[in-house]
């Protein structure tokens, strides 16, 4: 029996009797990162990285959670388990599982680019690699982070010059902090939606430095937004919440914005192709670096991407999971706060 199996409720290690990112309620769950499609509510015990603990508790409330730093090891019934940086968001990890010399790595979501906030990705040698494939087609290749932020800053500065507020839609965990850390704060003040600010507060309380932000509240004078940058979850943008910022320019920051069609469909003013997932080259580089011969491809273009890997001489197979990756067309599940 393989060390890890893909069961109905999630990725399972029978020898250690533990699940990784399960979607059914289980006794013991190892969590790669705190996004809702990977870290679900209702497990008895959670194990995650030290940096993941604060956002996980913030999302799931009073749970039984144990955490450990990257590269430290815990042994469960002879199985050695450790976390290694995945670079996706703060605290995100690949899970390394070793038993009797056989090594598996479950990537969770990952990107190879250092985003200035999440611990940068580290490659881990293994025999079996479980990879995501959110952007597993050759049409997805990201521009340099600096180039994208130059574009964002230019757009913001132009809006400010025209007396407009700039609004960017972003996940409240991950993309929001990446934006806050990388935009040019000398242009103007950065405002946040409550969902983003509460996540910021949880992270700051756990001693993560985040650039200064101002929460949008009823008490704030509407005039103070002028020329500022507002970061809010996509779900807030369809509501009357945005009216107070008029006139404004609206942008989405997501890997899906690489396609003209998706960009135009959002009817936003701008789309920045900024993703926390690996692009085509990133996926291929990461897989090659593991040295693994057996690749299991989860959420994304799993069938196409595994066919491509097979063509490259690897044992690859698509695996059905309930992970979502980066969602833009489905209503984004956000922390309800």
């Amino acid at each position: 029996m393989p060390l890890l199996t893909f069961k109905k409720g999630g990725i399972y290690c029978a020898q250690a009797d533990v699940y990784i990112d399960p979607w059914s309620k289980v006794d013991r769950a190892i969590i790669t990162h705190a996004h809702s499609d990977h870290a679900r509510w209702g497990h008895q015990h959670y194990l995650c990285t030290s940096n993941c603990e604060a956002p996980l508790k913030h999302r799931l409330g009073n749970i039984s959670v144990q955490s450990m730093p990257f590269r430290e090891e815990v042994v469960m019934n002879g199985v050695r388990i450790s976390f290694h940086p995945a670079g996706h968001i703060i605290g995100s990890a690949q899970v390394r599982v070793e038993y009797q010399g056989e090594v598996w790595v479950v990537s969770g979501d990952y990107k190879l680019v250092d985003d200035g906030f999440a611990t940068p990705f580290e490659s881990v040698k293994c025999h079996h690699f479980v990879t995501e494939s959110t952007f597993g087609l050759p049409v997805y290749t990201w521009a340099d982070q600096q180039q994208i932020f130059d574009e964002i800053n230019t757009w913001w500065a132009a809006n400010r010059a025209n007396g407009k507020v700039s609004i960017i839609a972003a996940y409240s965990l991950g993309k929001a902090q990446r934006l806050i850390q990388n935009v040019d704060h000398s242009i103007g003040p950065v405002f946040t939606h409550g969902a983003v600010e509460n996540m910021n507060a949880a992270l700051r309380a756990a001693h993560h430095d985040i650039q200064p932000t101002i929460q949008v509240t009823k008490e704030l004078d509407k005039k103070s937004y002028k020329g500022g940058l507002v970061i809010a979850p996509g779900s807030a943008l369809g509501s009357s919440w945005v009216n107070k910022f008029k006139p404004f320019s609206l942008a989405y920051a997501s890997g899906w914005m690489a396609l003209r069609g998706t960009r135009r469909r959002r009817a936003a003013d701008r789309g920045f192709a900024l993703s926390d997932h690996a692009d085509w080259d990133g996926l291929n580089t990461a897989i090659a670096a593991t040295g693994a011969e057996n690749i299991y491809v989860t959420h994304g273009y799993s069938t196409l991407f595994s066919n491509w890997l097979k063509e490259q001489g690897l044992n690859a197979a698509p695996v059905e999971t309930q992970y979502v990756g980066e969602s833009i067309d489905v209503a984004e599940e956000e922390v309800a706060i």
């Binding site: 050759p138 049409v139 690489a258 396609l259 069609g261 273009y301 066919n307 491509w308």
Partner: peptide, 26 residues
Amino acid sequence: YSGISPWLFEESYHVVGDLAETIALV
């Protein structure tokens, strides 16, 4: 020129929905 198989190019084209753009991207 992109070093990908024709089938993968075609699948990419179906996703992108525009031939000129697909070529530019791959």
